[in-house]
């Protein structure tokens, strides 16, 4: 009788563990995202193909020829993305001529709805130097994993959805190595200072 009870309890415990691990696997960013299943396993060398709005394709090696400001978002985002894009536009103005040396990338996490014409139209409301990038869902999973950007689709009912998403901005050296982040609604002074630092550092890297 006692043994039965032990077996009963431990199988209950095992079932619980199984449920927790299933939940963890599903909720892990990049795994269950958008209900899209990546048919190919994530590649080790973290390569991907990204396409800009003029149809030019890049991979992880060719994308970051310049020091880069990188931000992930989507055009159906009501608050964080438009505010951040407006912030970035203002920082670029404050950087003045130096902004030519900086590449600014806005990667959509919603390639399903953010088609090239939609993204192009949307970005035309902001600084022209902000470049839109679209990646296929599997490539997007690789790139977001590389920069540790969580994004999870959230149902809003009747075919509508939004995303929980990382709101940080990444500053990358030429080559794509992340050196600094900017928080959501980072003050202009700090943001511009960090951007100048990134440009100066990249200049030193080039001369060495």
């Amino acid at each position: 009788m006692k043994i039965h009870k032990t077996i009963y309890l431990s199988s209950f415990f095992a079932l619980g563990l199984l449920a927790i691990s299933v939940y963890l696997v599903i909720s892990y960013p990049g795994a269950g995202l958008s209900g899209i299943r990546c048919m190919s396993p994530l590649r080790d060398n973290a390569d991907y193909t990204a396409t800009d709005l003029d149809g030019h394709s890049f991979d992880a090696q060719t994308l970051f020829a310049k020091p880069t400001l990188l931000f992930f978002g989507f055009t159906y985002c009501p608050e964080v993305c438009p505010t951040t894009l407006a912030d970035i536009s203002r920082w670029l103005d404050q950087l003045g001529k130096d902004s030519d040396k900086l590449q600014v990338l806005f990667v959509t996490i919603d390639p399903e709805r953010d088609t090239p014409p939609q993204l192009k139209n949307y970005l035309s409301s902001f600084d022209k130097r902000i470049k839109g990038l679209i990646l296929a869902p599997c490539d997007l999973a690789v790139m977001t994993k590389q920069y540790n950007v969580p994004y999870v689709k959230v149902d809003l009912g009747k075919d509508d959805y939004t995303f929980d998403h990382g709101a940080s901005i990444f500053l990358l050296r030429p080559g794509g190595q992340m050196v600094e982040t900017l928080n959501y609604e980072e003050g202009d002074d700090i943001a511009v200072k960090k951007l100048r630092l990134l440009l100066n550092r990249s200049k030193i890297d080039r001369t060495n």
Binding site: P78, E79, V80, P150, V154, L156, G157, T162, D164, H165, G166, A167, S168, T181, N183, Y184
Partner: peptide
């Protein structure tokens, strides 16, 4: 139109109806 709440979990913006 829906009423949404927003919370920042670390650097992740979460929005819920």
């Amino acid at each position: 139109a829906q009423i949404h709440t927003m919370t920042m979990q670390g650097d992740v913006m979460q929005m819920r109806a």
